[in-house]
């Protein structure tokens, strides 16, 4: 029996998915945990940001800073498009429009007619050119045992974690500021905040933009060492993010980050364990049927978390009742 999946699971700590999802989940925590916005389309923000970066980098040959600016702008525009019609309405309208918009983004980028830009269903490779040029690490292999990283892998992991920590610090300071008190007030009682003369819709919009930009930047971290695949930004991505956020604690800053680490570690361990069981015929499943298991587990975990521990691991129960 091959137990190498155990050290590999620890390698998830430096995996682009863990880092990227931590940032995207932080964005979702700004929406859902702090402001009470039910954004079911964080995958859409991720896709818009990712495509903005990948297209400007690979097609237009823009420098890194310009591509990142494009990512931010794309996410802001997407937030405006979804937020203006829905934020003055009840919470469920935002959820419906965002889940639909995210799927529509995914279908649209796969359109053959624009595949010269978007790469169609194959997505876009090679978003790393501008970023890897800045790599100061010597070109050798790092790590030990089964855990091996190239210098470029390590470079994006380091920069990625720095970005995540900076973003977490920013969100933490924002939430302690008057602005943070207002958005948290909106979560608790929108009418009360409105009666204090605050423009609730505008604050919600700012929150949607902030979280959306974090989602867009998250994709940049994910696609630099890998590639941009449209189908990685379906509804299941948003649902993963909800699981991560609720796991760590939606109303905390570091909850989503720890949540992402735990989430990908557990997923990696379960995948490895399942592969082992399937390969040794210990459970009646084929290797094709094994793939969906992780989604089923995440779905069930999400339901159980919301029902039995809505505040997550680090959250405060008082903050997590999500009244409508």
């Amino acid at each position: 029996m091959d137990f190498s999946f155990v050290p590999l699971a620890f390698g998830q700590l430096l995996s682009p998915l863990t880092i990227g999802y931590a940032l995207a989940a932080l964005g979702l925590a700004v929406h859902f945990g702090f402001t009470g916005l039910l954004n079911f389309g964080q995958a859409g923000f991720m896709a818009v940001g990712g495509y903005a970066f990948a297209i400007t980098t690979t097609e237009f040959g823009w420098p890194l800073w310009a591509s990142i600016l494009a990512t931010v702008l794309g996410s802001v525009l997407f937030a405006l498009l979804l937020g203006i019609p829905t934020l003055r309405l009840r919470a469920d309208y935002l959820s419906i429009v965002t889940i639909a918009a995210a799927e529509i983004v995914r279908y649209t980028v796969k359109t053959p007619a624009i595949s010269s830009f978007t790469g169609g269903s194959d997505g876009i490779n090679g978003s790393s050119i501008t970023f890897d040029k800045l790599d100061p690490l010597p070109d050798i292999t790092y790590g030990f045992g089964v855990l091996r990283f190239t210098n470029d892998d390590l470079w994006i992991a380091i920069v990625g974690w720095i970005v995540v920590i900076l973003a977490a610090f920013l969100v933490r300071q924002l939430m302690r500021s008057p602005w943070g008190r207002i958005v948290k007030g909106i979560r608790e009682d929108e009418d009360a905040v409105r009666s204090l003369g605050k423009n609730v819709t505008w604050y919600k919009m700012q929150s949607l933009i902030l979280g959306g930009v974090l989602g867009g930047l998250a994709t940049v971290i994910v696609i630099i060492p890998t590639s941009l695949q449209p189908d990685n930004y379906g509804t299941q991505t948003t649902f993963f993010l909800y699981t991560i956020v609720l796991l760590g604690g939606a109303t905390t800053v570091f909850g989503p980050i720890i949540g992402s680490i735990i989430f990908w570690f557990v997923l990696s361990i379960t995948d490895g364990l399942l592969t082992l069981l399937v390969a040794n015929h210990l459970i009646p499943l084929t290797s094709i049927q094994q793939g969906p298991i992780r989604f089923i587990l995440v779905g069930i975990a999400l339901m159980l978390l919301v029902i039995f521990r809505p505040q997550g691991i680090f959250g405060n129960k008082r903050e997590a009742h999500f009244s409508v």
């Binding site: 469920d92 989604f295 779905g299 029902i307």
Partner: peptide
């Protein structure tokens, strides 16, 4: 509350779909 219920429904959707 309703918002957690909606999240339960997305969890259910994910599990049943797969």
């Amino acid at each position: 509350a309703l918002i957690p219920l909606m999240i339960v429904s997305i969890g259910l959707s994910l599990a049943v779909r797969y």
